[in-house]
């Protein structure tokens, strides 16, 4: 075979292989369920066979029964929507301010020298430390909760934005200069696409912290929300309610993160990423 024929044969083999792998790949996501399901079954079995005391370690069946009860009474939907709304508002507030300040600090050395040291100092403060102050300032209702969540989301997004801008390759910017792009065109056609991948990663980190901080926020006095379910479960001695709320957090966190990934995917198809197979 000549080199070209060999190439064609290899290419055909590759395409055939890819077609065969396709249904497999569609089922691939099921792999992610293997560990949780095995763990749940083992837990259930351990309680059933009396190996573990079920009172403080309720088996999955009791947790799902609790979830079902909460869902039937409409409470579950209420708690989920209240918590999700708080995360959404705090995340939006945090992301908008972080993006603006990060962009400003990235664009101007003066702004960076002015703002960055102070923000890095604030970042070192454990954000939960703000809780007492925020309650004094903003009361125990929605305002203080949303601001606490916003503070949590702010830092990863600010750092991601600033880092992404500072790491844009001068060589790429020169391509824009050679074709005489105006500053707005340079931002739109070179800077934005160049920083987008790192920015999306920082949004995901920020959203993760948002879910973390909503619990802290709801611990500081709430009558609704998944964090309230946690506190209520502790005070009334209902571990199955605590675990049910934790389970809902896991699901919501994964879903919202997935939404971010799906929403940004069409903008990032060009990426030459390291993706190990097999």
């Amino acid at each position: 075979m000549t080199a070209i024929e060999t190439n064609i044969a290899e290419e055909k083999a590759r395409i055939a292989g890819a077609e065969k792998r396709l249904p497999q790949r569609r089922l691939r996501f099921l792999l992610g369920f293997v560990l949780p399901v095995v763990f749940a079954l083992a837990w259930e079995a351990a309680v059933r066979f009396g190996l573990v005391q079920g009172r403080l370690m309720p088996p999955p069946s009791r947790i799902f029964a609790t979830l079902y009860q909460l869902a039937l009474s409409g409470e579950l939907l209420l708690h989920i929507s209240v918590t999700t709304a708080r995360v959404a508002a705090g995340f939006a507030l945090g992301v908008v301010t972080a993006t603006l300040i990060g962009a400003l600090a990235g664009a101007s050395k003066l702004a960076r020298d002015l703002v960055d040291p102070a923000l890095q100092g604030l970042r070192a403060v454990p954000s939960i430390a703000w809780v007492p102050l925020f309650i004094l300032w903003f009361g125990i209702y929605e305002q203080s909760k949303i601001i606490l969540i916003a503070v949590g989301c702010f830092f990863p997004v600010y750092l991601g934005m600033l880092g992404a801008i500072l790491s844009v390759d001068r060589k790429t910017v020169e391509v824009g200069r050679i074709f005489r792009l105006s500053t707005p065109a340079l931002v739109r056609r070179i800077l934005l696409p160049a920083i987008l991948p790192a920015y999306v990663v920082s949004l995901r980190a920020g959203l993760g912290l948002g879910w973390m901080f909503v619990v802290a926020a709801e611990f500081m006095g709430a009558s609704e929300g998944l964090g309230y379910l946690l506190v209520d479960g502790q005070q009334l001695g209902k571990p199955e309610q605590i675990l049910a709320a934790i389970f809902v957090f896991a699901v919501l966190g994964k879903i919202t993160d997935g939404l971010l990934v799906v929403a940004s995917a069409p903008l990032l198809t060009w990426q030459d990423a390291f993706a190990p197979r097999g």
Binding site: T172, V175, D272
Partner: peptide, 20 residues
């Protein structure tokens, strides 16, 4: 004094924009 429409430049590296 600034990049000119009648002057093109090819760099040592391709410098293609990876998102296009």
């Amino acid at each position: 004094e600034a990049p000119h429409p009648e002057v093109g430049l090819v760099f040592q590296e391709p410098r293609l924009l990876p998102w296009l």
